[in-house]
């Protein structure tokens, strides 16, 4: 299994993602944002950070990076693509995922552990979880407030594309448990065919007991399981 971690100038979770994918046995390589050929990768991951400083709008400049065209092609061919935090923002800016991520309702950067409910297990990144499972992992972002119009929200809900939703530690939906004001408490969603996943929480930071949680392991384990099935 060969996984590419796409690094933009200003990415800062690239190394963390590298380590997380490596932990479940993947062969991981960094892909610099100017690279043009993505042949031979089984999955692509877009890390968190502040690509190009996010001075214009989170992800807005990374979207026009040379590598994006190939990432879009890879996704359209059904290749698994995971975007975490800034990676999620870039996927939205690039049109691989609908809607957008705007400034947190608090108007402050929010960094803490939150809980999400697993709602979909038919993606290559969540198949090892149980539906209804509650995961604990960190968030760390200033622009994670998922915004979409009512029609899009209805569509996402009807098609079952909300993969993760912010909940309290006992699984309740509430304003308090929603750390950034996201519509419908959306923490992660997939594209129509389910191979592209974007999420604001950081599963790569919840991989070891010493870091406070191992609930993120499932994301990477799911990918490993799915890719090995494909190969077989």
């Amino acid at each position: 299994m060969r996984v590419g971690v796409v690094t933009f100038p200003g990415s800062n979770c690239d190394y963390d993602l590298y380590k997380a994918a490596q932990q479940i046995g993947a062969k991981v390589e960094f892909i610099w944002h100017r690279q043009k050929n993505l042949d031979g990768y089984d999955a692509l991951m877009l890390p968190g950070g502040f690509s190009y400083g996010d001075y214009l709008r989170a992800g807005a400049i990374a979207r026009i990076s040379p590598v994006m065209e190939d990432i879009i092609g890879f996704a359209e061919n059904g290749g698994p693509v995971l975007g975490i935090c800034n990676g999620f923002q870039i996927l939205c800016e690039a049109g691989l995922l609908p809607g957008s991520l705007v400034r947190n309702a608090s108007l402050r950067f929010e960094s803490k552990d939150i809980h999400v409910l697993v709602e979909q297990t038919d993606t290559p990144f969540t198949s090892e979880y149980q539906k209804g499972q509650i995961l604990r992992m960190p968030i760390a972002h200033g622009e994670g407030n998922y915004e979409a119009d009512d029609q899009l929200l209805e569509e996402l809900e009807a098609e079952g594309r909300v993969v993760f939703r912010y909940v309290s530690s006992d699984g309740e939906l509430s304003e308090e448990a929603n750390p950034n004001g996201s519509k419908n408490s959306i923490a992660g969603l997939s594209n129509k065919s389910g191979n592209v996943l974007g999420m604001m929480p950081h599963p790569e930071r919840a991989m070891e007991e010493i870091l406070g949680s191992i609930d993120g392991v499932g994301v990477f384990l799911s990918l490993a399981t799915n890719l090995s099935t494909v190969v077989l």
Partner: peptide
Amino acid sequence: YHQYDTTVRT
């Protein structure tokens, strides 16, 4: 400290 990233670099 909820405004500070405390967990990056894992």
